[in-house]
Design a protein around this nucleic acid. Structure first.
Lengths: 338, 338
DNA sequence: GAAAGCTGTCGAAGCGCTTCGACTGCCTAT
DNA sequence: ATAGGCAGTCGAAGCGCTTCGACAGCTTTC
């Protein structure tokens, strides 16, 4: 393994000079720089990460804590993770992948050992037990998600409340007066991850403002659960003509069931989904949807984090504005309904 | 930040003693050990990762290279990644997440800098450009996937050839004589990732042995592509009663289309899928399937890697035996067919 | 023409840990 | 009784890098 000292010797300069060439923290004459760079290339030198971390107390690593559960919104997670890794690289950072399994201990371990310079936490619960630790350390962090108390924290998330409002607005504008919301699985609400509640909040308050009736039903994914839920909804509110679906794995079942019952989309019934664009496009009916901007969230999180690491940047909450894309699953409410 | 020296002082022993308590590489009296452990706890000591890496030339980090593309078999990737991270932790390793973006350079960077002790590569192509680098270094690595030349490499993968054979066997046993294979998107075959070809190989040779007719058509995911592909298949082979689907995102469209055409599953047509169990269970018809054992692959890869790092373990190819689970999508071929 | 300020380079002191050799007692074998 | 062995501990030498202060040789300034 080639060391700094070897490069220095090869280039006929001192070790510190090579170091300064690498870091650019002091000015180096062009000729010296070129000679050093030449030697680095010839010898195939790569600075030793451990030594660097020890000497500079910077590991150039960002820790990313992803939820352990692989049962939900997996593509979103994956996309965020990839976006984080890619963006981090452009800023000279690598990404350490942590699972939620260790819980708060992972935070302690990583901050304590200097393994990473900063952390990104996904799947943050409203009252997450990792938050006190984050507040108690000077290590920068960014949350993807929104806890109940955001003081002293930096958060990036989709504005789910606005998302809910947007869905209702769209349907209301088309004349729908009875809207059903297919929510996430009950477990999601119980975990208090927040985003589901916030969506609901947005849906409800906008519905009230617009004088639209709203029925909310949580729903596990899959056909059987969706069949039960749909039956219940249509039983309680036979005049329902608009659906908002938050649970990705309920989208396709819903469409299939509506088809089976002879309800045409969008002629008889309109469906708005909250899901990644890819899902919306690949569905059996191209779905009008509010996209979950996974990539953007990942990118944003890293950029905020890097800003903090560079001493710029402050604590703040960034809520990305939702965008609704009209596709083929929504249309005017059938006349005579409601 | 608490250091080893501070712990040593607090416990009234030398730094090396604390180190030996931590590593267990020399015997320590019970009383001393307990005193040291007590101090560690009281001070909340965490060994500095950089210093450790520098002194021991071991980072206790495993690099995981995942494909950049987020368009395909994402849940499988994610599950593997999580399994890798979880298993690695049980062996005292952390996981560094690399995207394929940097390509071979990432391998150079990581091995050169001592950032990681070992690597796991996913999405390996038949003639992957990273392979020469891996062969040329003494850093252990494991591939998830199977390149053309496996000499000097350790690989873990599902036995896709046997998977193909298994699918055909199952359908043939039920009396199906005309089988169509819905393959992966053409791009997958062009990238030569191997698994698609191997499946096809298994399908074809077993079909020939069993005297079954096979029609293979690649297919992009989604409804439109699937509709075109299905129409073509039924045009060319109207007597087709068995389907093998390799492309996850074609599964649901296929089922929907069959339903639309009044072909009942499994009475008129049988469908076998190659996909994670979760997908098979959540589909509109519970699918007979060969599972892609993502977790097991991730776990296996880490365990092989750790064995290598410990000096045990050798290069070898581990092909996991496929398992077919019969669910509700396959049944006897309709009499009078073919 | 001396003081002051640059620019470019070097030497040396760590960063916090692991690990090797050495040492001290104490136990066992002869 | 004495040599040898072993368990338990310590001191010191690095691991490869960053960074601080120093300094030599310039140029600029009044």
């Amino acid at each position: 393994m080639v060391t700094l000292a070897e490069v220095a010797q090869h280039a006929g300069v001192s070790a510190s000079t090579v170091s300064y060439v690498l870091s650019g923290k002091r000015s180096i004459s062009t000729t010296t720089r070129q000679r050093v760079e030449q030697s680095i290339r010839e010898l195939g030198y790569h600075p030793n990460a451990g030594a660097r971390a020890l000497a500079s107390s910077r590991s150039n690593i960002i820790a990313l804590m992803v939820p352990l559960r692989t049962d939900m919104y997996v593509p979103v997670m994956m996309e965020i993770a990839i976006a984080v890794a890619t963006t981090a690289r452009t800023h000279g950072y690598d990404v350490l992948l942590l699972t939620g399994e260790e819980g708060p201990d992972a935070v302690r371990r990583v901050t304590g050992s200097g393994l990473a310079d900063a952390m990104i936490l996904m799947d943050v619960e409203l009252d997450d037990e990792r938050l006190p630790l984050l507040r108690g350390t000077d290590q920068p962090s960014v949350l993807i998600g929104l806890p109940a108390d955001t003081s002293g924290l930096t958060c990036v998330d989709l504005d789910f409340k606005a998302t809910g409002a947007l869905c209702v607005e769209h349907l209301a504008m088309l004349g729908h007066r009875d809207i059903a919301v297919i929510g996430e699985a009950p477990a999601v609400y119980e975990r208090h991850t927040g985003f589901a509640e916030r969506t609901l909040d947005g849906l409800r308050s906008r519905a009230q403002e617009l004088g639209v009736r709203l029925l909310h039903r949580p729903c596990e994914g899959g056909y059987d659960a969706m069949a039960v839920t749909l039956a219940r909804i249509l039983d309680e509110r036979p005049g329902t003509t608009g659906f908002v679906v938050q649970n990705e794995s309920a989208v396709e079942p819903l469409l299939a069931l509506l088809r089976q019952q002879g309800r045409a989309v969008p002629e008889d019934v309109s469906v708005v989904a909250v899901c990644p664009d890819q899902v919306a496009v690949q569905a059996s009916v191209r779905l009008t949807s509010v996209a979950i901007p996974a990539q953007e969230m990942g990118r944003h999180a890293v950029e905020r984090l890097v800003a903090k690491l560079d001493g710029r940047g402050t604590d703040e909450v960034v809520l990305l504005a939702p965008e609704l894309t009209v596709r083929a699953s929504t249309g005017p409410a059938p006349s005579g309904s409601s």
